[in-house]
């Protein structure tokens, strides 16, 4: 009798382990990846390296948190990468050291740090507003609308940085107070330091989690993704919600662009090229459905971590960088193939 109970309990435990594995497959693979690499290369699990990976993750996760809610509404934003480039150049152009020889705008005065970052975010918001307006008022499908603004943003940033006599050269010589936003850290104890950029990313993660789970806007985002017609009948203002989602994304790209410029210490018109695809990849790896209505902040974070850890692990394992793309592609397909099993009709 007791034996049977134990057996039943064991079966139950096994079943819940299996359920958990199916639900959190990507997270498990991520943990295995980290452990395996850590065993092969001890340095991989050093504080310095882990913090470094998290710092890289920070910018990407902010971009993915812009893209994710858009995917949940059954949309897509191809302009994300180019907007990061545009806003990075805007912030950088106003934050070059006064003594730097090739300032692209020699006449710009010294301004408080917050002004250029705010302007970068405003630029992101403006293009986000444009995206949202084209999609909800002109009824252009998101793929096409943002394809258009993606190309326009690249043209605009190229014109902006193309300043004789320097031409379209990188905007370097950034002020130290700016670069330290992305590279600086709060010392905690000994060698352990908590970088500002990670704190910023955590704050953004928290705010977006609140937005999606605890606000009316978040609930309407899921409703539109799950059934736009029913959302209209239920009194959801679909245009306004969509525009807001694209505007929020634009603001996050602006923040990410500023941080990326600060991290690199420079910006070019080519910064951010193809990053929208990385953001979309991270989201779908994290279980965001491109057919709408499904996705979580935790999933998006997991997806971004998966990609950055994978890249870093392959470097540590001395694998050719060309392999990284092949592995990345395989992970995208495999993650979605596993994830979609949850939604396929049970026979």
């Amino acid at each position: 009798m007791a034996n049977a109970t134990t057996l039943a309990a064991g079966g139950k435990l096994w079943k819940s382990v299996k359920d958990l594995a199916a639900k959190r497959a990507v997270l498990l693979v991520l943990l295995l990846l980290v452990l395996a690499t850590g065993i092969a290369q001890k340095n991989f699990l050093s504080w310095d390296n882990l913090i470094n990976i998290l710092m890289i993750t920070s910018v990407y996760v902010i971009i993915a948190l812009g893209e994710g809610p858009i995917l949940i509404t059954k949309g897509v934003d191809l302009s994300a990468g180019r907007l990061v480039g545009l806003t990075a150049c805007i912030a950088a152009s106003m934050l070059q050291r006064t003594d730097y020889a090739s300032k692209i705008f020699p006449d710009f005065p010294m301004m408080p740090l917050i002004v250029p970052i705010a302007l970068a975010i405003v630029a992101g918001v403006a293009v986000g507003l444009l995206n949202g307006a084209i999609i909800s008022w002109l009824k252009v499908p998101p793929f096409i609308a943002t394809l258009g603004t993606m190309v326009i943003a690249y043209g605009a940033v190229s014109l902006y940085v193309d300043r004789p006599p320097h031409g379209a050269s990188p905007i370097g010589g950034l002020r130290d107070d700016f670069t330290s936003v992305a590279n600086g850290a709060i010392p905690i104890s000994g060698t352990f330091r908590l970088p500002y950029i990670i704190i910023i990313a955590v704050v953004v993660l928290f705010l977006m989690w609140i937005l999606l789970n605890r606000t009316r806007l978040g609930k309407n985002i899921y409703a539109i993704g799950a059934n736009p017609e029913a959302a209209v009948v239920s009194g959801v203002s679909v245009s306004r919600t969509l525009i807001t989602v694209y505007v929020i994304a634009g603001a996050l790209y602006g923040l990410a662009g500023s941080l990326q410029a600060a991290r690199q210490g420079s910006a070019t018109n080519n910064l951010g090229f193809g990053w929208e695809l990385d953001a979309i990849s991270a989201c779908v790896i994290g279980g965001v459905s491109t057919t709408g209505g499904v996705g979580t902040v935790g999933g998006i974070l997991t997806g971004v971590l998966m990609l950055t850890f994978m890249n870093n692990a392959l470097v540590f394992l001395n694998v050719s960088p060309y392999w990284q793309n092949i592995v990345k592609g395989l992970i995208i397909v495999a993650a979605v193939a596993v994830d979609i099993r949850k939604y396929l009709r049970k026979r």
């Binding site: 009316r216 899921y222 409703a223 799950a226 059934n227 029913a230 959302a231 239920s234 209505g293 499904v294």
Partner: peptide, 23 residues
């Protein structure tokens, strides 16, 4: 077509037209 949100929880389906009054 215009009533249910199939992939959302019953909870969210009940509240779809009502979130405003819970803010």
């Amino acid at each position: 077509v215009t009533g249910i949100f199939p992939i959302l929880a019953v909870h969210d389906n009940v509240l779809a037209a009502n979130w405003k009054s819970y803010v």
